[in-house]
Structure formats: structure tokens, C-alpha cells
Design a protein around this nucleic acid. Structure first.
Lengths: 248, 248
DNA sequence: CGGTCCATTGATATTCGTCAACGGCAGTGG
DNA sequence: CCACTGCCGTTGACGAATATCAATGGACCG
């Protein structure tokens, strides 16, 4: 799982075998050989949630490990007075669960309809012990997540509201940057969720979107669709010139 | 490595064998058997830096893996205009390096005199592939670090300046909370570094320290020493009532 | 049609950053 | 020994960015 992932969100679909699984190449099982896949196949099951539903409450028992197959969910932590911060976005192929722990430190909530590939805890941890390929893939994914989380710390601690919103939109749009523009994406989060992710209020997010639109950096089609003709313009607003240099 | 670690900082000292190593129980080598220790012993060397020196520049090659033996260092990322955010504190037993990468995404800087136990890249990665105990220990440490980083996201995104400073002091003081108060600790960071860690300015940190002192929550002995008679008072200022419940 | 939810917009308040001055302390050199 | 200088931290005055409070608008749904 990654705070802000740069990969396509697959449409929801029914999956049975691992061979034609849409996240086969990027999930925790990416490096599995056939033997390991068979073992995984025996311990797995699929489950779906509707947008808005809570998968796991903050501090509640987490009796499975899982991969996101389709949809989008958030990881969040709260203070007692209700202030809340989204600390990670879970997108297809991201992993849920922590070896050796049976409690989730975070609330996990579906922001769109979500389907998970669930693994029973016991068998999964056994596999992790016995299959270095799975263990090393999980380490690699965790370190990617750590890098992404640290990048988000820089955003939360040092960027302005406008830069925060631009960075968020840019990250989403880059996932769909297939060649030339205009680029278009559907926001997987509501304004409130975006605010909770960026350490802002809903009003500030709304205002910054309006300002970016009036500045000609983006267009909005309805509430959820963002269009950007020139990602360089957006990158220039994101406070991160390195990001701009890496654009197509 | 952990954003805000809850363990004692060992005084700087000379170490030769692994047996009497001060971080033996908590470092990446914690679960090693004798065979693995011998291998580590052959690939390791010690190196020290003075307070203020840069170990690795942001984006620069990192040709080793390492454990912090003594002292304190920071991981930080910067924007092009100079804005900077510390994204992790490195304290004794914390790990430096990432398998498969030869570049550091972060600047690593000594804030006190620091001694590292360096491992040559090649041999260390081989060990990681061949010894599940080392790999699983590294995974565990990375996941701890990820949890700590996410907790810091909540701080950066949602806490007030007063809560940020209180949380920071509380985390430091808890490391030395041996029994009953008054608790006392030496800050391993300057005011500027604290500000860079908390997403604040130096002036705001200074003001909040003064306010906490005038409110009777803490005392200051010189610039670097903080004394707190009642950690519950400090916890009450930290915005996190759960933290208070866990105090001695 | 009315109600609810979500987003936008405006007016105002507050927090924190910025700019500037000052103070203490250590190191340096006369 | 003492003035000088530089670094770090503190304090004050002010301003800017963002939060808060409040009203309105549009989409969806019963």
C-alpha cells in the first residue's frame, strides 16, 4: 500500500483463478511460483464492500491479510476530539495487514466500492515464513510505502494549500498519463476525504480547486472528474520542480 | 528506524565484537544466530561523524547499509526553494539503507556525534537473501517505522503548535521514564531541527516552549535540558489522551 | 415537491509565519 | 583580561494563510 499510488485503478470485476487476476503482477503475490500460488489459492477468498462502508475500525481486531483487487480505501487515524488524518490511500494491489499483529492501528474505509482478496491469517503467516519470495516482496512493498509516506510528510509539514491540492491532483493524473493530453481522471475521494488526506479543511480544498480552475490549470467536469491539458502547469503549482522534470 | 523512537540513546563508545554491542538486542542483527553473526562480523566496520556533519546528501549514492550504534541523526527531504522537512529521527539500533537501492532519497545528517556500524552492500544483501531471520527482522523494523511515520502524519496534518511540541517532548521524556519523576532529558536536536521535524518555524517552537514553561508543565535547564515533574500534564497538552492513559 | 447530502462562496477569526531587535554564550584575538 | 564577533535562542509587532462560521446552490432520491 502506498500513500499516493501511481497505477491504474482497475474496474471492479469478478476474479476466481490467480492467473487472470488483475493485480497479479503488482500484489504481494507478484513473485510467487506455481507452488506458492496454489497455496495462496487455498487460503484466499473474495469479499466486497460498498462505498462509504468501514472495513475495519481504528484499533479493532484484524483477522485477515488482504490485497485490494479493485476500488479505493483509506487508512486513517483520529484524535479523541474527532480530528482525523488519512495516512494512506489503498489502491489495487496494495496490501492490508501486518504480520504478527491482530489489531489494526488504523481505520480502513471504502471510498468507492471495493473488492479484497482475503487471506486467512494463520496460513498466510506460515507462507511468509516458508517462502522468501513472498516475504521479500512484502518487504519491498512496505519500503515503497514508507517512501511514499515520507513524501507525504513533506507535503503535510511544508506545502501550502495550493501546492497540496496540486500535488494530489498531479499524482492522480499521472496514473492515467498514457501519452499526450488532455489527461482526465475521476477523483476516488470526496472533498472531505481529500481535505482529510491533505491536512486541510473541506472549504480550503474547494477554494483551491476553484482557483486552479480559474487560473486555467485544470478543468472540472462535474464534481468528481478533473481534466488537465498540461501536466507541467500543474507540476509548477505543486512546489516540486523535480516532479515536473519527470513528466512525459 | 523510527520517526520518534522510545529507547535510550547509548553514550558513544568503542565496540569491536558483536557480543557486547550496545544495540545487539534491537538492531537488524537482533535475531541472528552465531553463524550469521560471524558473517556480519566479516562485513562490518565502524565509522563516526561529528555533530552537524552530513552523512549522505539527498539523492546521493549510498554504498552501504548500517546500524546506528550511538548518537542521533536525521532523515530529511527538501523542496527546491529550501523548505525542508525532517521525516525521521535515527537513534541507536535504527537501520540505514534500502535493499536493492544505491541512492538515498533523503539527506542524512548527524545532530550529535554519531557512530555507525557499516555493512558492505553486496555481502549484506546476500545475507538478507540467505537468512530469513535477518530479512524478517528488517521487515519488522520497517513496519514499526511505517507506523511511527503515520503517527507523525497525524501530528503534521492535524495538531496545533502546542500539541506538536508537547508530543515531541513527551516522546523524548518517555524514553527515560524509569520509574517516578521528575523526568529529565537532553534534547538531541537544536530549536531549528525541532522546528524542521514538527513542521513549524524556530520562533514558534521557542514560543511554545516558553508557554509550556510558564504554564508549569515543564522546566528548562539551559537550552538543551528539559525537566518534567508530571508527564500526565504534558500528555494532556499533546492532544492524545490515549498517550496519557499509557503513562506510568 | 421537499429533504438531504455535498460542494461552493463569503465574511470573519485565529493561528502561525515573517521580519526585526535583542540577549546570552563561546570562541577568538588583541 | 576584555572587547569583538558569530551563533543560537528569545521576544515583540505585524501580516498572511488558513480555519471557522454561516448562507446558498445544485444533484439526487423518496
Amino acid at each position: 500500500m502506498v500513500v499516493m499510488k501511481l497505477q491504474p485503478i482497475s474496474p471492479s470485476l469478478t476474479v476466481n483463478g490467480c492467473t487472470d487476476c488483475p493485480i497479479r503482477a503488482r500484489a504481494v503475490c507478484a513473485d510467487c511460483n506455481d507452488t506458492e500460488l496454489v497455496k495462496l489459492d487455498k487460503m484466499k477468498s473474495y469479499k466486497s464492500w460498498k462505498a462509504g462502508e468501514t472495513l475495519v475500525h481504528e484499533g479493532a481486531p484484524l483477522e485477515f491479510a488482504a490485497s485490494i483487487v479493485s476500488g479505493c480505501a483509506t487508512l486513517s487515524r483520529s484524535l479523541e476530539d474527532g480530528r482525523r488524518q488519512i495516512v494512506g490511500l489503498l489502491l489495487p494491489s496494495d496490501f492490508i495487514g501486518r504480520p504478527g499483529r491482530t489489531r489494526s492501528e488504523y481505520a480502513i474505509e471504502a471510498t468507492t466500492d471495493v473488492t479484497l482478496c482475503l487471506f486467512r491469517r494463520g496460513p498466510f503467516e506460515t507462507l511468509l515464513r516458508e517462502s522468501p519470495r513472498v516475504a521479500s516482496r512484502l518487504l519491498e512493498m512496505s519500503l515503497d510505502e514508507l517512501d511514499a509516506t515520507r513524501e507525504w510528510m513533506l507535503l503535510l509539514g511544508r506545502k501550502t494549500a495550493r501546492e497540496k491540492v496540486s500535488t494530489f491532483l498531479l499524482a492522480l493524473l499521472r496514473r492515467t498519463a498514457t501519452g499526450v493530453g488532455p489527461y482526465r481522471t475521476d477523483l476516488p475521494l470526496s472533498r472531505e476525504e481529500i481535505a482529510t488526506f491533505l491536512g486541510l479543511t473541506i472549504e480550503t480544498v474547494s477554494r483551491q480547486l476553484t482557483l486552479l480552475r480559474k487560473a486555467g490549470v485544470i478543468e472540472l467536469d462535474g464534481l468528481r472528474t478533473v481534466i488537465c491539458a498540461d501536466l507541467h502547469l500543474l507540476a509548477a503549482e505543486s512546489g516540486d520542480e523535480v516532479a515536473e522534470a519527470l513528466l512525459p
